[in-house]
Design a protein around this nucleic acid. Structure first.
Lengths: 214, 214
DNA sequence: AAATTTATTGAACAATGTTCATAAAAATCA
DNA sequence: TGATTTTTATGAACATTGTTCAATAAATTT
């Protein structure tokens, strides 16, 4: 009989409800002000119940963290319709910052907060998959740029770390309010120029492009 | 009589002791695990006493934050003996990362955590001075690089934001464990190459150097 | 020696994450 | 259907947190 199937469905439903409410509260109030009791009240269950579906608070935020990476990947993927890998890479930069500005809390959870990392370390699992998808997309685009002669050839890891560090640096300095000495309205323009600069730096110099090499 | 002077001295002494103990605990255990009661116990006073010397926990960490910037400035200043501004700038990058690696907790407090920022916002004061000193040093060095023809001329804010974002991106991604996909031992080399890359990008192209322009 | 100012604290408050024995509900078995 | 077992939910408690405030103790001034 399908009774166990139904129970499993119900169990998943409640789990998802917890996640939904937790996400809502988190995006509205932030991590610290989202308490287990808060979530419990909203789903009309006792606080203890939540611990039947999640090991601890960190695990809840680990799950939200994963959701954030889904949205992030979706956003980055918007660039994939662009044929030219160099233009595509540049577009990915814009989309990255768009995501950070539009979903600050998500961004913070995904790239700054300690909570989801702590949860991962306890699980002992290697499911980096969430973030890895986006990471691989970046790597693939960079590789394509180099292969097709749009970018000068260099170590893939160096290029990847350079680009993602610059992107994360801008996003996180902004989100964590370490750029208050600047007019907040011009920051997007500064960031744009910074991206242009680094793209320029990686651009293949005419003499070493694939057209002359291959 | 010098009684009030002595009292003020004593008051300052206890304040400093609180700060010392708080710093020690913070560097050893981190922010969350450094509780007011913990500090109180170590200085052999009641928890309530601490509130006679600091408005709240954030204010304590705001003070530690400032101390961190002192050390940071001292570290960056080691570069000042280098005459050539371009080499000096490059050296500042190394020193920046050295600081981040050697004093993770300080770095985190200074550039990532929300606590000191919250304290600042409540104070309503503009005493960014701590961080500003280092910031100005970076700006001055970049300016000198451009003026003396070592770096191509560009908007100072763009150059500053680009460089500091890259630096902070690397440091914070590392400290907050977002680069676990890389062998942690090679990270310093990746970072070094990233810095070299960006320096190269900013280097004056021979045709636009000051030697041809001036 | 008394009055006043300053410094300190114990006890309490409200909130947090988390656990666990108990109770309720549901599914299975006789 | 009625009894048993398994699953699900909870109330109450624990330890801990930051913070406040009326009370005490200490030091200084009168």
């Amino acid at each position: 009989m399908g009774v166990t199937a139904r129970k499993e469905r119900e169990k998943l439903e409640l789990r998802n409800q917890i996640l939904e409410v937790a996400t809502e509260l988190f995006l509205k109030e932030g991590f610290d002000k989202t308490s287990i009791r808060n979530i419990a009240e909203k789903i009309e269950y006792s606080p203890a119940t939540i611990y039947l579906y999640f090991k601890d608070k960190n695990e809840i935020f680990r799950a939200i963290h994963d959701k954030g990476f889904d949205i992030f990947f979706g956003k980055l993927s918007e660039s994939q319709k662009i044929e030219n890998p160099y233009m595509r890479l540049r577009r990915m930069g814009d989309l990255y910052l768009e995501f950070a500005f539009e979903h600050r809390e998500f961004y913070d959870l995904m790239f700054v907060m300690r909570a989801p990392v702590e949860a991962r370390n306890e699980e002992g699992n290697i499911d980096w998959l969430c973030g890895m998808r986006s990471f691989k997309l970046l790597q693939a685009t960079i590789t394509e740029c180099m292969e097709k002669g749009y970018m000068k050839k260099m170590d893939l890891d160096v290029a990847t770390v350079t680009i993602s560090s610059l992107m994360h640096g801008m996003a996180s300095l902004y989100i964590r309010e370490r750029l208050v000495m600047y007019d907040q309205n011009i920051l997007p323009y500064l960031f744009r120029d910074a991206m242009d600069n680094i793209m320029q730096a990686f651009k293949a110099s005419p003499m070493t492009s694939s057209f002359t090499e291959n």
